[in-house]
């Protein structure tokens, strides 16, 4: 199945793309997906502890089972608003 990945800020810089399509086996959990992404982009490993995960625009647990066509976003800690 195909998962659409969205990447922002530091993670976008590490991966070198705002978004890409990731092929995964059926029934994969979000945690397993992120494991695979981190394996391919090891510099993401340092950020794993503070990474927020969203599926289809909602923050979800890493145990969420993904389905074909899901949009997964890896979100760094936010830093919005005025300085």
């Amino acid at each position: 199945m195909q998962i659409r990945l969205r990447l922002f800020a530091t993670y976008r810089e590490i991966v070198g793309s705002r978004g890409l399509t990731w092929s995964a086996r059926d029934g994969i959990t979000l945690r397993e997906l992120v494991d695979g992404i981190v394996a391919k982009y090891p510099r993401l490993a340092d950020h794993r502890g503070s990474m927020l995960l969203a599926v289809n625009e909602d923050i979800v647990s890493a145990e969420r089972v993904l389905t074909d066509g899901d949009e997964v976003a890896l979100l760094p800690p936010v830093s919005g608003g005025a300085r």
Partner: peptide, 14 residues
């Protein structure tokens, strides 16, 4: 509301 914007809304600045 401003505190919450900074805390939870997915916005990043460089």
């Amino acid at each position: 509301a401003m505190d919450e914007v900074k805390r939870i809304v997915p916005i990043w600045k460089t």
